[in-house]
Nucleic acid binder design. Structure first.
Length: 423
RNA sequence: GGGGCGUUGCCUGAGUGGCCUAAAGGACCGAAUUGCUAAUUCGGCGUAUGCCUUAAAGUGUACCGAGGGUUCGAUUCCCUCACGCCCCGCCA
C-alpha cells in the first residue's frame, strides 16, 4: 500500500510510476486525493465537536462535585442536543476512511527508476548470464523420463493419493530433495540469516499483510472451517513475524531464512508448462527475507542477488538474471530480478528464484516500523527472494547432468547426498 | 469437547465510573559524575491522525484485543466476537 503522503506531495511521481507499471485505472489517483481531502475535512469537524463535548463532560463533573446541580443540568441539555450530530459526523468520517483504504489497496507499488519500460516478459532485460551450457548427446531425456528411469519421482502415485501436481519423491529422489534443502539452509545461515521453521498455514491478517488478500485468495488453498490459508511461500509467515512492531534502528537489517513447502492452486495452467516438475501444486522452497533501513535497501537487494547467483554457480547450472520490466513485475514489487536456469533437455529457461525489493509497500500495510535517530518512526523496507525453489532446480540437475551411466551430482551437494552419482 | 482466567504503550506490568494527562521497572535518548569494557544520579521518552508552521515548537482528536451498548463522562459496567493461558477429557 502506498503511503497517502505521496499523493499530496508527489502526484506526478505516482502517475508516471503507475504508467510504467502498465496500470490502467489512473483515475483512481485523483479519486484518492479527493476522498482524502473529504476525510481530512470531516476529521476536523469531528475533532472540534468532540473537543466541545469533552470539555462539557468535564465541567459537569466539576459542577456536580461542587453541588451546582443547575449548571450541570444545563450542560447536559447542551450535550444531548449535539449527540445525534456527533454520531453522524463520526459515521461519515469512518466511511471516508474505509473508502480511502479500499482505493489505496487497489494501487500497485511504484517501480524503481532502473526498471525497464515494457509490458510483456519479452521486454525483460537480461542483466547477465553465467554457467556453462551442457553438451548432451542425442539420447537426452526430459526430467520426467529420467525420474521414472532412475525411480526418483512418481507422478502417478501423487495423482492417486491427492491429485495432479502433487508428485511423490522417493528413494534417491527424496534424498536429493532433502540434500538441497539442507545445503540451501546452511548456505543462508552462513551468510547471516536466522533460520525459522514457521507455520505452514496462516490466518487472514497474515495473508493480508503480505498482499495475498484481498485479491488473490483464489491462488491459495483455504481451510474454510478454521479460516486458515496454506502458505504459497514462506515469505508470508516470515515477514509477518514483525507485523505491527517497531524495531530499534540498530537491529536493522533483519535477515531471516526458512524452508517450507509451498501450496499453490495454479488455476488455469495447462499443457507443457505443467509437465513434470515445471509447475506443481505443492513444492519445496527455501526463502530469504530482509527488513531493511530505507537508505540501505537497494544495496541489500544487490547483495541478495549475488547471494542467489553464487548458489547457482555452486550448483554448476547455466543461469541468467533478468531485470523485470514494469508490466511483468508483481503488484507489490518495486524492483525484481528473476533467476532462470536452462533446462537442457526441454531446451527452455525455467524460473527458480525471484528477488525483490518491496520498499515500504508491504511494511506500510503490516505497520513494520523502526525508530530513527530523531526517535521518529519510519516504515522499513522489505525484501525477499527464493534461495531456492526446488522442483525446477531438480529438473535441471537431472537433465543437464545426465550421461550414459547416470546423473552426476554437483560437488557441493555430494556431502549432503552421500554419493557422487544417481544410477 | 467441558470448565476457569486473561488480552494495557517498544518490552514487562499496576490500575473497578471523573486528578488516567495510565503507576512502576526495563529498553532508548540527553546531562552530570566516577579510571576500566561499565556503574550511579537527574531529566526526557507511547502510537496514529488532523490543524498551525519553511521547520522546530504548539495544539485538537482517537487509541488500554475487535465491534456494539449503558452514561453528561468508560481502561473500569453490559453484550457479541477473536485470540491467548491453565485444568479436565481425547490423542501423537
Amino acid at each position: 500500500m502506498l503511503p497517502i503522503q505521496l499523493f499530496k506531495h508527489d502526484k506526478d511521481l505516482v502517475l508516471s510510476g503507475l504508467r510504467k507499471k502498465n496500470f490502467k485505472d489512473l483515475d483512481l489517483v485523483d479519486k484518492i486525493i479527493t476522498v482524502d481531502e473529504s476525510r481530512r475535512h470531516m476529521q476536523l469537524e469531528y475533532d472540534n465537536l468532540a473537543a466541545t463535548l469533552n470539555a462539557a463532560a468535564k465541567n459537569i463533573g466539576l459542577h456536580m462535585s461542587k453541588g451546582e446541580k443547575h449548571e450541570a443540568e444545563q450542560l447536559k441539555e447542551m450535550v444531548a442536543l449535539h449527540k445525534e450530530q456527533s454520531k453522524n459526523i463520526s459515521q461519515k468520517l469512518s466511511d471516508f476512511e474505509t473508502e480511502l483504504q479500499d482505493l489505496l489497496v487497489r494501487l500497485p507499488n511504484l517501480p524503481h527508476s532502473s526498471v525497464p519500460f515494457g509490458k510483456t516478459p519479452e521486454e525483460n532485460e537480461v542483466v547477465r548470464t553465467g554457467g556453462d551450457m551442457p553438451v548432451l548427446g542425442e539420447h537426452k531425456l526430459p526430467h520426467w523420463e529420467l525420474a521414472a528411469k532412475y525411480s526418483l519421482i512418481d507422478f502417478e502415485l501423487g495423482n492417486k493419493i491427492t491429485g495432479s501436481g502433487f508428485p511423490v519423491f522417493h528413494g534417491q529422489g527424496a534424498r536429493l530433495q532433502r540434500a538441497l534443502i539442507n545445503y540451501f539452509l546452511n548456505y543462508n545461515i552462513d551468510a547471516g540469516y536466522k533460520e525459522y521453521c514457521p507455520p505452514f498455514m496462516v490466518n487472514e491478517a497474515s495473508a493480508y499483510g503480505t498482499g495475498q488478500l484481498p485479491d488473490k485468495e483464489g491462488q491459495m488453498y483455504h481451510a474454510v472451517e478454521d479460516n486458515f490459508f496454506l502458505i504459497p511461500t514462506a515469505e508470508v509467515p516470515i515477514t509477518n513475524i514483525y507485523r505491527d512492531t517497531i524495531i530499534n534502528e540498530q537491529e536493522l537489517p533483519i535477515k531471516m531464512t526458512a524452508y517450507s513447502p509451498c501450496f499453490r492452486r495454479e488455476a488455469g495452467s495447462y499443457g507443457k508448462d505443467v509437465r513434470g516438475l515445471n509447475r506443481v501444486h505443492q513444492f519445496d522452497k527455501v526463502e530469504i527475507v530482509q527488513l531493511a533501513h530505507p537508505a540501505k535497501s537497494y544495496e541489500l537487494l544487490e547483495e541478495m542477488v549475488s547471494h542467489v547467483e553464487h548458489l547457482l554457480k555452486n550448483l554448476e547450472l547455466p543461469y541468467r538474471i533478468l531485470r523485470l520490466c514494469g508490466g511483468d513485475m508483481s503488484f507489490t514489487s518495486a524492483l525484481t530480478y528473476d533467476f532462470e536456469v536452462f533446462s537442457a533437455a526441454q531446451e527452455r529457461w525455467l524460473e527458480v528464484s525471484s528477488v525483490s525489493n518491496f520498499e515500504n509497500f508491504q511494511a506500510n500495510r503490516m505497520k513494520i516500523r523502526f525508530r530513527d535517530g530523531n526517535s521518529k518512526t519510519q516504515i522499513v523496507h522489505t525484501l525477499n527472494g527464493s534461495s531456492l525453489a526446488l522442483p525446477r532446480i531438480i529438473a535441471c540437475l537431472l537433465e543437464n547432468n545426465q550421461n550414459a551411466n547416470g546423473i552426476n551430482i554437483p560437488e557441493v551437494l555430494k556431502p549432503y547426498f552421500g554419493k557422487s552419482m544417481i544410477s
